[in-house]
Design a protein around this nucleic acid. Sequence first.
RNA 1: GCGCCCGUAGCUCAGCUGGAUAGAGCGCCGGACUUCGAAUCCGUAGGCCGCAGGUUCGAACCCUGCCGGGCGCGCCA
Length: 554
Amino acid sequence: MREKIKKTVHDAFNTAVSKGLLPEMEIPSAHQVSPPRQKNHGDFSSNIALISASAAGRPPRQIAEQISSLLKDDPLFEKIEIAGPGFINFFVSRSWWQNNLLTICNAGDAYGESNAGRGIRVQVEFVSANPTGPLHVGHGRGAAVGDSLARVLRAAGFDVDTEYYINDVGNQMRTLGKSVYLRYQEYHGVEISFPEDHYQGAYIRDIAREIAEREGDRYLDASETQWLPVFRDTAVKAISSGIRRDLADFDVHFDHWFSERVLYRNNLVEKTISELQTKGFIYEKDGALWFRTTEFNDEKDRVVKRSNGVLTYFASDIAYHRHKLDRGYDILVDIWGADHHGYVPRVRAALKAMGHPPDRLRVLLVQLVNLMEAGKPKAMSTRAGEFVTLREVLNDVGSDAARFMFLTRRCDSHLDFDLELARKQSQENPVYYVQYAHARLASVLRTAKEQEVDLWEPDQVDLSLLDTDEETDILKQAEAFPGLIADSALALEPHRISYYLSNLAGHLHSYYNKCRFISEDQDLTQARLLLARVMKRIFRKGLNLLGVSAPEKM
RNA sequence: GCGCCCGUAGCUCAGCUGGAUAGAGCGCCGGACUUCGAAUCCGUAGGCCGCAGGUUCGAACCCUGCCGGGCGCGCCA
């Protein structure tokens, strides 16, 4: 509808120009058609007169007058008003909204989807936690945002792949193996001193115990070259499968799991560096290789190969992003913890150096989660390895509540996650509000069935009976659903979906309390039940985009 | 010190990339179940959009400078 009105205004503008009502000029690109905040300003509002006023050399209200006079007879509109400094306000006729319900209904389960993305290939990479410990709540937020964003992008017509990058190369893997080995020695009664920079969590002991129970003490006298591969790989395997299980229970499933080892196995890191070297972006200093990222707005140059010959994490990151683009993705979305924001300029620099437009990489920074319990901050000391895991949160409050909480806020704002609130099955918990709207509609339709009300074919229903203000509001919101998904996808902001749904649920609950779906009036009942069916589908679709279930009963 | 993010109702946060009189949830107070589910609804109160300038028809939004909070600034991963 919005696009339709925009086009209508454009046509009228051009007509006005060709008729000589306005001076020769282009349609200003800043022209916007948007729903006004104030209800009495109509359904949509155009600012075209305001922004073209100075170029046209006329007062805005006069321009608005000329454009609107050309549109007065369009039956789409109930009325057109000129208001304030020169806005043109459009009031769409009620019958259009009513008839649109049939269009929505005919779209079926696909309603809400669009082709805004035009099949552009997008890769969304998220979580990507190192396999050195279980996922914590912060990862959970990233997982919820990434997974939901992927769903939204798909619904908006993008061709989406999701990916988890496994950082399984380097020193940390050795540290992991050693941590387990030390606990293994400890298990067998060997006196150990456990270094502070090793992995502290209790899960390390669990893995050590498993190995000890399975293998006995045969590794006590072994050399590091013998035990390290065993302890390291066992740990990675155990931790990785734990991570996968946590994500699966969070209803997050990846299309690809990409191992950093693949980059090394195919020599891609070395190749990428030497390519940059050929292009002259690499120099040697103090025995190390440096990448001149300052040439692309980074604060300082970065090391890609240390003087001891070891490639840095950054080096494999460059190779990884190159590899992603080589795989044919048009846009790369990286979702990182906000504490990594310092890496954005250097990765961008790498893309630029390799000749890619840097805006093909979109980085979403997800702020850390502040866990609360009944309004009080819950202590999280990372140094003792006592962070709260995603698993604990899932067991505590459930997947639906957790996901909804993570998705009600913009991802770059700090999030207070109150466990007590998320646990509560009451009105304070926003998850239930939306789910209840869905369950209520399901209940209404069940009741209709029990009372043996036969549902008519949609095109047999008299939609003009949906004429209360509440119904009109709901019809308008339903119409906006596909546009909302498209906007949410283009802005990479999945939280808009949860706001939309909360708002829609509000309208629905309000309507429910005021009007009855099922009544003596057969025609009215049919019209309202059709509305119920359509709304239920929108709730289900919307909740699904968030990865939250849509229960028939609660 | 430099860089990035944030500052909106008592609390937690939206504000559709610059629009008209600033929004929601929670909390407070007062009402609504013999009726399709009260996990709901209806009503009241609550604001110098951190501060000060600038840009223009128009600023919570864009620019500059302060104030306050978070994070990052290794040949770590």
